[in-house]
Structures are given as structure tokens and as C-alpha cells.
């Protein structure tokens, strides 16, 4: 697979390591309601869809940026790549 890095252009997926579902950006608030239930769901439960999947990749042997890659799990086709930082800010994360 080739990942089209927003800053560096087309890079081989071998340069990256894979973390998983992009919802991992949204760590629950430990002071919120039912934190242990929230952390259980956050840590262990996944949608695991067959089709479009937004997921976190880390450019480990490159510029060490985190990316959110939108990829079809049925075909491995990648349709969108963004810096995870931009996605996190857009979705309301402070830093």
C-alpha cells in the first residue's frame, strides 16, 4: 500500500506503524461520568467495519507524524490522508 502523506507525498506503508481506529484520538475524560466504563469501551471495543475505516498510522521511519488514513478494509484502497493533529483540532481536541 502507498500512503499519500500530506507533507511528504507518496510513501510506502512499510515506513509506518499501525495503531487502529481513529476514534482513539478521543481519550475519555477521567473526571467525566462513569470513567471506568468509558475507558473500557475506549480501550477494548471497536466498530471494526467492513468498508470505510478511519485509522491512525505513525510515520515511524519518516517524519514521525501521526496520520488519519481513510481506507477501505474490503479493498485496501486509500481515499484520504490527513495529519492527525489537524483532525484532532477540528474535532475539538485542545492539543
Amino acid at each position: 500500500m502507498i500512503i499519500n502523506h500530506p507533507l511528504l507525498g507518496a510513501r510506502d506503508a512499510q515506513e509506518f506503524t499501525y495503531l487502529g481506529d481513529a476514534s482513539l484520538i478521543h481519550r475519555p475524560d477521567w473526571q467525566g461520568e462513569d470513567p471506568s466504563g468509558q475507558f473500557h469501551d475506549y480501550l477494548y471495543l471497536r466498530d471494526n467495519p467492513a468498508g470505510q475505516h478511519r485509522e491512525l498510522w505513525f510515520h515511524e521511519v519518516g517524519d514521525r507524524s501521526w496520520l488519519v488514513v481513510t481506507r477501505n478494509t474490503l479493498t485496501h484502497e486509500i481515499t484520504n490522508v490527513e495529519l492527525a493533529r489537524d483532525v484532532a483540532r477540528r474535532e475539538g481536541r485542545g492539543k
Binding site: Y44, L45, R46, D47, N48, T73
Partner: peptide, 16 residues
């Protein structure tokens, strides 16, 4: 597993 159990409204501790 995840696809079929989603039909019953469940999310599983799994990735395929």
C-alpha cells in the same frame, strides 16, 4: 464476528 454481532447491536473487543 464483528459484522454479524453488529446485527444484534453489539460492539466486540476485536479487530479483523
Amino acid at each position: 464476528s464483528s459484522r454479524v454481532m453488529a446485527l444484534a447491536g453489539m460492539r466486540l473487543p476485536m479487530e479483523s
